[in-house]
Amino acid sequence: MRPSFHPEGLSFDDVSSKSESEITQLWHLNGMCPEETIPIKRTKEEDLLRASSVANYGRNKYPQFDTTDTNKTAFLEVQLNRSALVFVTGDKYYGTKATINAWKPQIQEQVEFSLSQLSILGDNTGRELNSIGASWMVNYNVYGDYNTRLFAFFSKDSNQIIGCYNLLCSPGFVQINREIALGGSLNPISVSAGSQYELHFLIWKGGGGGDWWLQVGNKYLMGYWPASLFVSLSESASPIQWGGEVTNLQKNGEHTSTQMGSDHFPEEWYRRASYFKNLQSVDGSNVLRFPKYSAIFARNSNCYNVTKGNQADFINFFYYGGPGRNPNCP
């Protein structure tokens, strides 16, 4: 399978000279996969033991409970996701592109995670909320370590089954690339006050069949989410979101110290804060365009925040992130 077309205006030449042109994963030290094959991260016994069941491994972002049970509902009130993001809405979108610098945030609890992603969502007025996302994350519950890993994710039924990471369910994402492993560790990553390691992502509706394609960088066509997975994403998307998210498993009323992005607030700027840049969306004519207007959202700006900017070297960019618990975020 190959997409029927790419968006018009696609170019990764606008990124800075400091960007990495190759994606390096730790497994590359042992060679590459042969032709006609793809790399698949090995599922081990301990991976399955971390999941509530074999069927749920790699599927659930959050624990799922019967909300009619008051005791379990009380737990849900302290199991929160924290987001700091930029979004566009109102129009019909057929894809998105962005450049993101990769970091290794510290995680407080094994059941928490920290991710940065670009995502597209379908109509959220009913129970068939669809979403697609990709980028990097730290998630012990899925991977069994605290490495920064490349991921792809989809959800097809709102808050029921939630969805699936990488290649961990079928039907799901169909990979065609033999060079990059979804779920593989990224190396190197950005260094505070030092070198910045960037990743470039494109998600778009790439053909008459309605499949949603994922490309990483200018050479890694990863694969596609089949159109048959979706209802509200069957034709177009709205809104599009870019930003960070963490799980906050509060204990004794304290906010988690799980970090978002680089651990630094956006006001610390380049080489310290996490950023997205070159934000674009695909319109109905299959043309990549910079958004004319976008909004920002931070659930608790004293814990994690986001700030927009626009300058010559960072076209349509924003900084985001934070340390979590601190004197202003108890």
Score class of each variant (00 low, 15 high):
2 R>L: 06
286 N>W: 02
328 N>A: 02
2 R>Q: 05
22 E>M: 01
161 I>E: 13
329 C>Q: 04
261 G>A: 01
140 Y>H: 15
181 A>G: 05
311 Q>W: 09
286 N>Y: 11
176 I>S: 14
11 S>V: 00
99 T>P: 00
253 G>C: 10
108 Q>W: 04
21 S>W: 00
281 S>M: 02
241 Q>H: 14
108 Q>P: 00
237 A>R: 14
205 K>F: 08
292 K>T: 03
236 S>L: 06
19 S>H: 03
277 K>G: 05
176 I>P: 13
313 D>G: 01
145 D>H: 15
12 F>I: 06
76 L>I: 00
136 W>V: 06
317 F>M: 03
197 Y>L: 02
103 W>G: 04
198 E>F: 11
299 R>G: 13
76 L>H: 11
91 D>C: 02
96 T>W: 06
127 R>K: 11
190 S>M: 00
71 N>F: 07
93 Y>H: 10
71 N>E: 02
43 T>F: 09
198 E>D: 12
316 N>F: 08
322 G>S: 12
227 A>F: 10
37 T>V: 05
173 F>I: 01
169 C>W: 10
150 L>M: 06
327 P>Y: 09
306 V>L: 08
203 I>H: 13
70 T>V: 07
325 R>D: 05
178 R>K: 14
221 L>G: 06
77 E>W: 11
118 L>N: 13
324 G>N: 03
328 N>P: 07
315 I>N: 11
8 E>P: 10
219 K>V: 02
302 N>G: 09
18 K>G: 15
153 F>W: 15
192 S>M: 02
27 W>D: 08
235 E>G: 13
233 L>A: 14
89 T>L: 06
14 D>L: 00
329 C>P: 03
271 R>F: 05
257 S>F: 06
124 N>E: 06
50 R>T: 09
197 Y>H: 02
69 D>L: 09
6 H>S: 05
184 G>A: 07
298 A>M: 08
42 R>E: 06
247 T>I: 14
279 L>R: 04
236 S>Y: 15
74 A>I: 10
179 E>D: 15
308 K>T: 08
188 P>H: 13
52 S>Y: 11
98 A>S: 12
249 L>H: 14
231 V>I: 08
191 V>K: 13
315 I>T: 07
135 S>I: 03
53 S>I: 04
132 I>H: 13
25 Q>L: 00
119 S>D: 11
228 S>F: 11
140 Y>N: 13
288 L>G: 04
190 S>Y: 08
300 N>W: 06
268 E>S: 09
101 N>S: 09
153 F>P: 01
213 W>R: 02
230 F>M: 05
100 I>F: 07
326 N>K: 04
96 T>P: 04
57 Y>P: 02
48 L>N: 10
171 P>H: 01
277 K>I: 10
321 G>T: 06
79 Q>P: 04
272 R>M: 00
244 G>Y: 03
224 Y>D: 09
101 N>T: 03
103 W>A: 00
244 G>E: 10
112 E>P: 04
125 T>H: 15
38 I>S: 12
126 G>R: 10
23 I>V: 08
306 V>G: 11
58 G>S: 00
213 W>T: 09
320 Y>K: 00
67 T>I: 08
108 Q>V: 11
